[in-house]
Every structure is written in C-alpha cells, then in structure tokens.
Computed example of a mutant assay.
Amino acid sequence: MSTNKSIEFLQEMAIFVKVIETGSFSETARQLGHTPSAISRSISRLEKALGTQLIQRTTRKLALSESGKQVHVHCLEMLNAAQTVIESSGHFSEKPKGIVRISVPKAVGHYLIHPYIPEFLERYPDVDVQMLLEDRHIDFIDDQIDLAIRITNEPSLGLKGRKLIDIEHVIVATPEYLKKMSNPNHPRDLKAHQCIYLGEQPSDSKWKFQKGRTTTTVQVKGRYSANHTGIRLDAALQHMGIASLPYFVACSALKTGKLVQVLPEWYFKTYYSGGAWLLYPPTRYSPSKIQVFIQYLAEKLKHEDFLI
C-alpha cells in the first residue's frame, strides 16, 4: 500500500481498533457518533484495501482473524503514536499527563510499589495511576495496560523491560514459636513443625533448599495455608508456625527481631524468586507519563536492598 493510500485509510484503521476495543459495531457507532452500518462499511473498505478479512463476524460476537491480529497490533501502535503527538510526549513544553495503568503481583504492589505512589502523584500532579493487583499474566492489549511487573529470570520475548530488583524468599518464625517448638537444624526437621505455605498448588508444600552442592526437598505440612503474603506474615507474627515469605515482606520484622530466619545457611528455592522486571510493549513512541513513571520506580527501588 502506497503512502497516499495509507493516509487515505487512517480513519478506517482507527475505527478498526475501536471496534476491537468495544467488541461491537453498534457500541463503536454510539461512541463515535456514527451508525452501525457506517462502521461496518468502514471495516469492509479496510479489508478490501488490505486484501484480507480482519474480523470474523457472528450474530453474537466479533473475533480477530489471524491476519487481523497482526494488523490490529500495528494499528494500535499508530494510535498510540498519534496520542503521543497530541500529548507532545513531554519533549516540548507540556508536562507529563494522563493515566498510567500498571499490572503488578499482589505482594509486590502492596509492599514495594504502593509506598512510593503518593510521592509520585505529588511530583506529577497531571498523571494518574491505576494499579491492578494481579498474580496472573495479563495481556497488554486485552487488559488495556501500559506496564506490567513480573517476577521472572527470562522476560517475555516481544516486550521491552527494565529490571528493578531481585526477589528472594525466606522461611521465618517468631523467637517465641521456636523456643516452644525448637529451632530446625536441617530441612528435614521441618516435618515436625507447623508450616505456613502458599497452598495454591500441591508443589507449594514441597519446600526446596540448597546448601553448596547439596539440594533437598521437604514435604511440609501445617494447619494453615494462605495465598496472601500479608496473611502469612501476620500468621507467623502470631506464633502460628514457620512461614514462607518474600524477603522484602519479612525484612522489616527480621530487622526488629520480631521474626528470625529459619535455616539461614540453606538457600530457600521457590518458583516465585527471580528478578522483578518492569515490562512494556516495544514502541518508539513512549508517552512522557510512561517515561517518568519508569524512571521514578527505577530510581526509588535501586536504593532498596532486598537481598538476604
């Protein structure tokens, strides 16, 4: 398609993105002030120009074809670029403004990111933040987010990223609990203890440890499991047992002596350890609101020490 043709169909491309966003011709028409038939003709013109079917239509819903998925990505980039132009990308006289939508694992959002949000909002009064606390992997397009923090050692291909911090896990208990029940000297001693673990899947109760070249796995048990980090922390503080926690959650209580690390000479291995990566779709057009948010978090977290 020539440059002139590309310009000719910019509006159709924008309407195509809106249709996918709303999932409906009639809702798109309502939001844009057109008729559903006009929206349908616009999509048909774009499909004819590109020589491919973009949307598979049924009486109940719309779905992208394989070629439609690729076209949608590029059209969305075009609209993001246009929005960047409108916002001047912060490279001119305008200040960063708009909303930043970020998906964050629950514990990371609560303990690491949330404490810094008030200062960010004060520093950038024209930027709003919507933080979605999700432990599942989300889709940038379907969930309409700008950034995602994921715990991984291998960031997803096709995404840009910036590593914020490393995350390690520990097992902890109160001095009172250990005085009552004895302090384990070896991972196998955990079998005699009440252990507080995640409990989302069977492997969560199989705790793995490494010391030098020695690796051992222990099937722990306990009367209480919880898939909420804050609850496991509170349970440990109430002397209910030995809890598995991210170090960044336990470190404050460890420093004050309310908790002590159990088996500190053994490295506690979990599927939830790794780097905390701030990920975003690759694009040359990153709005200033995104740029300042990424830089702000990176600057704040680089001063934190969450390594054991």
Rank of each mutant, 00 (worst) to 15 (best):
Q238D: 15
L50I: 03
E265D: 14
A81R: 13
C195V: 01
Q70I: 13
L79K: 08
A226V: 06
R213F: 09
T174M: 04
R136W: 08
M181W: 10
L159M: 12
A226I: 09
R284F: 12
T174V: 03
Q53F: 03
H186A: 06
R41D: 15
T35A: 15
L132I: 15
A81Q: 14
E154A: 15
E200T: 11
L178R: 04
K258C: 11
L190G: 00
A29E: 06
M1T: 02
H72P: 01
D146G: 00
L62N: 08
V172F: 08
H169E: 03
K302L: 07
E21R: 05
G98R: 00
K95G: 06
A236W: 04
Q56I: 05
K258W: 11
E122R: 14
Q70C: 10
R284W: 14
R188H: 12
W266G: 04
L133F: 11
Q194D: 02
K95L: 09
E265P: 08
I99D: 11
W266P: 05
D135A: 05
H303M: 10
H228M: 13
V170W: 06
E66H: 09
I145N: 07
S244I: 09
M131Y: 07
V262Q: 04
Q53S: 05
T84N: 14
Y177T: 01
T84V: 11
